[in-house]
């Protein structure tokens, strides 16, 4: 006998176990949590710029259809995975220090400038990637390089 189950009121969210159809190539999901992603965000933006822009243009063209941009989406994920792997190969300690700091500080960048600068320096030396914030005022020190900022944590 079948009964009605409201999936919205279940104790567990409903998970559809069906895998992707076989005609779609498989890609390993990135699987990083929010703090490592936030730590790596500007490097993902710098390293995967073309793939990201391509994907977003495709999304704009498809008006929300998820089937339309699967190929571009796989490229985006592969590129991000590639970058995270490279970061872990080259700057593992600095990366770990920064995202652990973010994890402990409500994921605020301003609270973690010291590990961030170490990570930025390592990323520039090893991979040639720099953190740039688009749209920040010309001719001023970018916010992540200000020596004595007004906003800091209570405990230095």
């Amino acid at each position: 006998m079948s009964t009605f189950h409201d999936s919205a009121s279940g104790s567990q969210p409903y998970k559809d176990p069906t895998p992707l159809p076989d005609n779609i190539p498989k890609v390993q999901e990135l699987g990083a949590t929010s703090a490592p992603l936030k730590s790596a965000a500007f490097f993902i933006g710098a390293y995967c710029k073309e793939y990201n822009e391509d994907f977003m243009l495709c999304k704009n063209e498809s008006r929300g259809d998820p089937a339309h941009c699967l190929k571009e989406g796989r490229r985006v994920t592969r590129c991000a995975t590639d970058l995270i792997t490279k970061m872990r190969e080259n700057c593992l300690e600095k990366f770990d220090a920064h995202w652990n700091c973010l994890e402990l500080n409500n994921q605020e960048y301003f609270a973690c400038r010291k590990p961030e600068r170490a990570l930025n320096k390592c990323m520039f030396d090893k991979l040639g990637l720099t953190k740039t914030i688009p749209g920040s005022p010309q001719g001023k020190t970018p916010i992540h390089e200000v020596a004595s900022p007004v906003y800091t944590t209570v405990q230095r």
Binding site: D16, T18, P19, L20, P21, I24, V27, E29, L30, L37, K38, A41, F42, I44, G45, C48, Y51, N52, F55, M56, K59, P66, A67, C69, L70, E72, G73, R74, V76, T77, A80, Y109, I133, P134, G135
Partner: peptide, 20 residues
């Protein structure tokens, strides 16, 4: 901007799941 840089990545993952 840190969130904007992550949008394509998260959107792509969500799209794959929605399509599945």
């Amino acid at each position: 901007w840190s969130r904007i840089h992550l949008v394509p990545l998260l959107l792509a993952e969500g799209d794959r799941d929605t399509y599945r």
